[in-house]
């Protein structure tokens, strides 16, 4: 029969083993953060969720992809029960893209398959993710936070095209190609 002392020693050994495992994982995360600059998207920016249609930025005519005056590619998306507006955004490959998203109703979430783009969309706040898409094609962008009865039908597409096929109009806007 093991004594209390033996049991305590066993528990301490296991605590050290688990502590070492957690330490290794923490170091890996820290290394990715410092050496590769891979960090969770963080942006603290508020917006009135009841007046998105009156805001300068998230009015219906301003949604989608736009190349700003400084050359930055920005996509603006509204996540609402149970669809994204627009349902398809066109972005160029191998070029930094800033995705800005907000919601007028409930909490949504978004990820772009095959990439590290992944963020929550909370009413009252603007979520922002900067990413560079390396592969071309149609990437599925589903809502990943249960938002109601139609949640499973809520998805959009990020259409990544080669730089030579990314041709914004005179206002800098670019929309998905007809499929």
């Amino acid at each position: 029969m093991k004594s209390e002392r033996d049991i305590l020693r066993t528990e301490l050994q296991w605590t050290l083993a688990v502590g070492a495992a957690a330490g290794v994982v923490s170091l890996a995360i820290l290394w990715a953060s410092l050496a590769h600059l891979i960090n969770p998207p963080s942006n603290f920016e508020t917006i009135d969720p009841a007046a998105l249609h009156l805001s300068d930025e998230f009015t219906e005519s301003n949604l989608g992809t736009r190349v700003e005056a400084d050359g930055e590619v920005v996509t603006r998306i509204v996540a609402t029960q149970f669809a994204f507006a627009p349902s398809c955004v066109l972005v160029p490959a191998d070029r930094p893209v800033t995705m800005r998203l907000t919601s007028p109703d409930v909490i949504h979430g978004v990820l772009v398959t095959g990439t590290n783009v992944n963020t929550m969309i909370v009413p009252g706040y603007v979520s922002q993710v900067r990413a560079t898409f390396r592969t071309t094609g149609d990437l599925l962008m589903p809502c990943h936070e249960y938002c109601g009865i139609g949640h499973s039908q809520m998805w959009a597409v990020v259409q990544v095209v080669p730089a030579e096929r990314f041709k914004p109009d005179a206002q800098g806007r670019a929309a998905c190609e007809k499929r």
């Binding site: 990715a32 891979i38 590290n116 783009v117 390396r134």
Partner: peptide, 9 residues
């Protein structure tokens, strides 16, 4: 998977 996908921020 994670590292090859590159950084976001």
């Amino acid at each position: 998977v994670f590292l090859p996908r590159g950084g976001v921020g």
